[in-house]
Structure formats: structure tokens, C-alpha cells
Design a binder for these strands. Sequence first.
RNA 1: GCCGGGAUGGCGGAAUUGGUAGACGCAGCGGACUUAAAAUCCGCUUCCCACUUGUGGGAGUGCCGGUUCGAGUCCGGCUCCCGGCACCA
Length: 802
Amino acid sequence: MSHYPASTIESKWQKRWEESGLFRTKEKPKRKYYNLVMFAYPSGDLHMGHCKNYVIGDAITRYKRRQGYDVLHPFGWDAFGLPAENAAIQRGIHPKEWTFQNIEISRQGLKRLGISYDWDREVITCLPDYYRWTQWMFLLLYKNGLAYRKEAYVNFCPGCQTVLANEQVEEGRCYRCQTLITKRRLTQWFFKITAYAERLLRDIDRLEGWPESVKIMQRNWIGRSEGCLIKFPIVGDDEELSVFTTRADTIYGVTFMAVAPEHPLIDRISDPKITKFAERVRATPDYLRAGGKDGIKTGLFAQNPLTGERIPIWVTDYVLATYGTGAVMGVPAHDERDYEFARLKGLPIRKVIEGDAEGAYTGEGRMINSGPFTGMDSESGRKAIARKLKEIGMGGATVEYRLRDWLISRQRYWGAPIPMIHCPSCGIVPVPEADLPVLLPEGKIDFLPKGRSPLEACSEFITTTCPKCGGEAKRDPDTMDTFVCSSWYFLRYLDPRNDKEFCAYDRAKDWLPIDQYIGGIEHATGHLIYFRFLTKVLYDQGLIPVDEPALNLFTQGMILKNGEKMSASRGNTVPLNRFLDEHGADVARINILFAAPPENDMEWTDEGVIGAERFLNRVYRLVSENKDRIPAEPSEYQPDSERAKELYIAVNQTIKKVTDDLDRFKFNTAVAAIMELVNRIYLYPEKDDPVFGIAINRVIHLLSPLAPHLADELWSMIGGEGFLIEKGWIGYDPDFLETELRTYVVQINGRLRGKVEARKGADEETIRNLALKDPKVKRFITGKEIVKTIFVPDKLINFVLR
RNA sequence: GCCGGGAUGGCGGAAUUGGUAGACGCAGCGGACUUAAAAUCCGCUUCCCACUUGUGGGAGUGCCGGUUCGAGUCCGGCUCCCGGCACCA
């Protein structure tokens, strides 16, 4: 295949773009458009699998620029995190050095792809200039009671030797290394995201430009559940056992109480049999606990607050410590799990809701055996019982969420140190803001993970003085979850060199909210909740003007190779640099945009590359062979022949189609439309007809957001000035969108039987007469009666026969 | 199990509001150019049947049924695939 000189063209234009500062953001936007792609972990082996969101983001940026927006299109690096430390352990290279090498490689790759980032605003989360403000965020949350320390059973990854947030456990495994998660009882820092659960849930309704799937995932993740808190007094004790239930209407059917082995009540029992059982279950990973049913009597009894009945309390392995109160009321007749447990342990089963089912009847119905509530339906029974419980001070209606507080401590080195000091006399003291950043020590560190932070053994870091009393104290040895760094990076782009604030309010006002956010759907219940949370906190503090960060979200699919996600460990990557050497950036871009709708996963194939390359070659040839016939700035045009008019209409239709498609992220059909036009131009016989040159000129324009290097090259070949990104987006001539003559479909009983040509806007009579003249139609109609005629203007006529 | 999303030629996919199913690309077939090949350009290309060989007929968008003059599109029931959650009380 003869190639157009892609690499010459691409390096030439990349150099020119850079020299002219083409992608530098306007300081004061008039018509702002904040276009944000999720920043990246600098992995060092940049391959095609990484490129899809950059290519999409770039196409949108260039298109919006041409529509007259002042676009902010920044990029940065989510630069803290485990792989850097693992590299340090395996290869003896310092995480910082490894990270910066990778950033350099990746940045070059993105430049070679021709992505229009404003590199002046690059942020790198592992630089003190950045993590200083991550630490500042921590202190802000702390001051507002939203960062706190507690002892809890937490997810621990034996592979990474660190604790993890709920969002980082997938099917019982670590999201990074897939090691099975175990539980550990540790004192850790949490962010009180649950305080925002209701707002995070409610405001999902305002995210009109988000994919429905992401919104549903977030709603489920937050997991709002309306129910009732019920206090069961413990017999012979001042304490009560509180439970949460959505089925208060079944309270007369309680035959046992079940508590999680982590429940504080267990600590007060000294029976070694019970303690041993609880310990054993606690040590069992969640994934092994799931589904099982076992338990042991505590010997304690609770009292039903409505009936006064004595009910045995059991420790069980099936009650979750982390949901509700860590205890449930056991209603075997109406809950499958309680039923299973009761059958196993021979506990009584008491029906209190009418209804038939094998095992437990979990539906609603008329209440029976329920004292004064007997005869009510479930729903009114629940209300009445909640009211009653509230009246007697034993509970009442309440709302629970599945969402847990965000555990942000990590026992790793390569992260932002938690800016807290532990003083033997003053307790936990925050580092004064003026002392930020708390710098990560760069001396000799033993990175080998041991379940404790490597920083703990680094005395130059750990030993400090208490800001309050001046006495000797210790720093918190843990670093923050990298999702803390990534929950506010979109703000730093707005004011990246500010050393007084994380971002000046005016800058935030200029640019927020994000107009378009582009990234992977894998962040649906992690990053995309965290960054909404932090936005709300900052908004509540009056620090930014919006309480939702992004109005529109686009989640792109993955690029696959051989049906699998590209990754170095699978050995199925298409390395970026080699591909760019062989085919060029525009071929990569067109292939990515054309092969599948952007929200779908796409398979990277050699055949796809061939198609993209052939197309761009065809365009290049068209322009280079007809340079002198193509005007850079076409003047007013009126077609002077039927043929010319047809092509001119196709040109205008294509402009409209591509414009509409780009507005809706339908890059694949936009490319197809341009291909179609190019095919038509190739078939146009009269090369000296002005419409021929005009059509090619329009192709160059339409291609500019998608294959920008080639477009600028062709633009200069035809004598165009400057860069296409600076030109206004081309419009279409509404007078030439439709052909005068069109094909009307003739149907008989809804089946296609013929076609007739007629003028646009022809009336039913005309079409009917034409249709009835058609010999084929005639044949079908002969001997039958037309009982009804359906006429759709400009489209079809349908005869209903009997 | 629950909650989403999906199923269209040999393949990726298109069809904006119920109105010509299969745009565009790949692969395949045929032709032109060439000493030849590659590249390029042009044409054909859902399946089945018929013959007069370019025309006619039939079937067809996972399966079964419905609504409608007309269904890939709407409704009911199912099958399979993908994603999320998963003892959430």
C-alpha cells in the first residue's frame, strides 16, 4: 500500500501547534467549555488500550473550539500508587524516579497522538505542590468533623499489605492484585461520606447528562432503605439491643435475635465457647462467610418491646456487622435467611402475615397473630408499629444506607502522608496549615510491605514535635488512598500554580462545572462518587460555586485485543510508539472512532487499521491530485447542473449529519458519512466543476476534529491560512439539503411492491396515480379492491387490498 | 437471586419520530490498469427458490405470540450473552 507521508506530516504539525501555543487555554473564558478526560496512572507502557478516551476528548475539544468555545482541555497524572512501589521493590528504582520516567514517556506518547492538551496546566499528584492541597483537603474534612479515626474490622489485602475501602473490593478480591481480602481490626482514618448519602442520592436526579447505567449503579451503591429502628431491652441489663428492619410489620413473629460476631455485645460475654466461635467467624473472609448459616446461643435474652416476650440472643455468621446495627430480629416465618437458620437450630417459626409459600413467606399481606395490629395490611402495620415504638421510646422509622464511610488510610509509602500528629499528652493533633506539605521522605526507605506503613520505620519522618505542646510526638505513618488525590484534581487544573489556595474562587467560577467528563465506567461507584462527595463538601464551605462537579458524563468502552482487555501481563498490547511509526496518529484515531460506537468495547484489528488507512490515503490522494481545483475559501455557489446540484446536496447533508453526530458522540457514523461523501466525490466525472473542489474543501473541514494532522496538512496544501482548529465550524446551506425528486415507496398491504419517482411535497393524488401506473403494482391490484390508502408525505403510499 | 444493558449478513456495525432492513468499513467475488505482482480505480456481495441471467417470488433483525395498513423499532411471555450488586434484614 502506498502511504501518505503520515509521520512527516504529523511531526510537522505537532511542532507548529506547539510553537504557536495553539492549545493554551484562554485565561478569561468568554464562552467556556470544560472538557475533561479522566487523568491517568503513568504506567510507562502506553498502548492503544489506553488511548480511546484521549482520542474522544480531543475530537470533542477540536470540534467545540471550532464552534467558538473557549475550551479547557487539561491533562495530568494520578501519580501516587502501588505499582511505583512494586517497581521499587522489584527493580530497586525509587518510586519517584520510576513515576517521572513513565510520565515523560506517556506525555510524549500523547503528544505524538496529537492530543490538544494545555500542558501548561498539567498536574502531577505526587508533587508536593499538589499533595500539599490533598493534605489541606484532609484537614478541611477533619475540621468539619468529616474525617475521623475509628477502630473497625476493615478490608485488608494480604497481597498489597494494606487496608482498602469498600469500593476497592470486587467480589471479595483486591481491585488491584485480585488477592482475596481478609478482615483486620484496626484503627484507621475514615471520611464521613455517609453524612452526604442522602444528597449524593438525591442529586443523581440532576445529572441529566449522565448515562442511566452509572446513575443506577450509584443509586444501588448508596442503597437507601427505609425501615424502622427497634430497641429490644436485654433482660437483666441496662442495655438494649437495637436492630434495623424494613419489616416492622413482622415484629410479632420474632423468635430469636441474631447478632454479628463483630457486635460489641460479644465483648461483654466471657464464655470461651462463644468467644471462640465469634473469633473464628471474624477471621473468616467475607467471601467464605457468604451463604453459610451457623450460630451459637449467647445465653442472653432480649425482650420484645411490644409483647414483652423473652427472646434468645444468638451470635451468628450471617448477620453483617457493617449494615444497620449489626444485629437483626429473627423472623423465620417471613425471612428466608432467618428461616434457614431457625430450621437448622430448631427454633420456633411463627406466622404473622397471611400468605402461602414454601419456607418463608416474604411477601406482604394481612397481619395475623399481631395483637392490636392484627388485620392491618403490611404497609399500614409498619407505620402503626413505628409510631407505637416511637411513642414508647423503643425506636421508630429510620433510613439506612448501604454506603459505608470511606476508609482512606493506606499502609504504603507512595502516597500523600496523612497530616496528623500523635502526641502522648495532647492526643491527635492536626498539622497546622502553615506547615503543609508534610513531605514524603526520600531517603532510604524499606518499601517491602509488612502490613504497616514503611514510613513508621523512618525516624526522620515519624519523629516530630507536637504543634500544641511542643513536646516530642509522632506523625501518622499512613498515606492517603490515591482516590483522595483524584477526587479534586479537576479543580487544580483551573489554577494549577496557585500557592495560596488549591484554586481561587474566581477561577472556579469561571470554569465550573465540568461541561463534559469522559472516562471509563469502572469508576462508576468509586471515583465518580468520591469526586461528587468532595465537591459537595467544598461547596458547603463556600470554596467553589457548584455542588455537582460534572453535568455530562460519557463512559467510553474499552479497546480489546483478541477479546480481552489489553495489558502487558496478557501480552496482547499494541504499543503506541511502534504503531505511530508504522501508521501514524490519524490512522489510529480514525480506527478508534470508526470501528465501533464509542460507548462500546471495540476489538482492535489489523483489518480495522487497513480500512482507516485506506480511507485517509484516499482523501490525501484526492486533495494532492486536485490541489489547484480546491478553493481554500469557496465563494458563494449556485449549482448549474442537475449533477452538480446532487453533489452539492450530498455535501450539505454530510455537513449536517457530521455536525449532528459529533453533538451526540456518534463518531462512527460521522466517519461513515465522510467516507460516503468521499466515495461520491471519486465518482464525480467533472473535476473542473466548482462543486468538485468545494466538496473536497468540506471534507477537509469535516475531518479536522477527527484526523487533525492530515486535515491541517491538506488545508495548507490548498492554500489555507493558519490552523483549522481556529476556524469557525462550517455550516450547511439549508436550501440544498433535500433533492427535488425523491423515491416514494409503494406498498401493498404493507409489503414493498414498487417505487415511484416524484417531486418532494407531491400530493397523495399524484403519487397514487403514478403508483397505479406501475406494472408491477398493477399486477398485484388487478381483481382486488382497494379498501384503504395510507399516504405518508415524501415517503410512501400503501394500498390496503381485500 | 436482585438491578441494568444487549442479541441485526461471513465479521465490526447502520437504520434520529413505527414507513425501502443491512449505510459505512472489513473480508470475499468479478473487472480495469500492469510484462507481472502489489497498490489503485470500478462493479457485485443477507439467505433460499425459479427461469428467459436480470428479473420475478419467498423468507429474514435471538425465540413464541400480540397491536398496527405497516414492527429491528411498540406490548406480553421466553432463551441466551454482557455488566453491576450479592446473606444489605
